[in-house]
């Protein structure tokens, strides 16, 4: 029963995380560029982006923890992360998700704090931080495509998909 609830929470948190990742990449970044051009970006950077980033980074943590708990509780954590046996496919998804979590907390969030003015930074530092955060965010968008493939298909490995 706890595995069922955990799996459900994992998917809810994952939808929140990846949904906001796609929002940032497909909507906010191009929208913000257009808003800056006509001088209406302030509302987005002040009210929208910090809230979206709050849900984004904590949803990433909940997704990883519920995923790790599931693997540990099922006794497949080690096999998945060393890509062993039938759990290797899920393991590839788990590694990609782990890299994405690292990107969120080590590259995206610290640099976004500079870009949004939540910590002090010069204009040059802000420009560099914006580029780093964008590339990390785009990397996560790219990684999410195989990550979701291996999460979905890996959880079906018991029916012999591979």
């Amino acid at each position: 029963m706890d595995l069922l609830l955990d799996r459900w929470l994992h998917i809810l948190a994952g939808v929140t995380w990846v949904g906001l990742l796609y929002y940032f990449n497909f909507v906010q970044v191009p929208g913000l560029a257009a808003a800056k051009a006509d001088g209406t970006a302030a509302g987005i950077t002040k009210h929208i982006a910090p809230r979206a980033l709050l849900w984004f980074r904590w949803a990433a943590v909940v997704t990883w923890l519920t995923g790790a708990y599931y693997l540990a509780r099922a006794g497949t954590f080690a096999d998945a992360f060393v890509l062993q046996g039938p759990h290797a496919y899920l393991g590839i998804g788990a590694w990609l998700g782990t890299i994405m979590l690292f990107n969120v907390w080590v590259l995206i969030w610290p640099n976004q704090k500079k870009v949004l003015g939540l910590v002090d930074a010069s204009d040059a530092e802000k420009a560099k931080a914006a580029r780093t955060a964008l590339l990390a965010s785009r990397t996560n968008t790219m990684l999410s495509i195989p990550m979701l493939f291996f999460m979905v298909t890996g959880s079906l490995s018991h029916i012999g998909m591979f």
Partner: peptide, 30 residues
Amino acid sequence: MKNPLDSISGTIISGFVLTLILYIFANGVL
């Protein structure tokens, strides 16, 4: 060479290419 991650389309195409590479790795190496 242009970074494919500079565009949304390049990012998505890179994701599909990486999926294919990892699929081949998973089936051929693991």
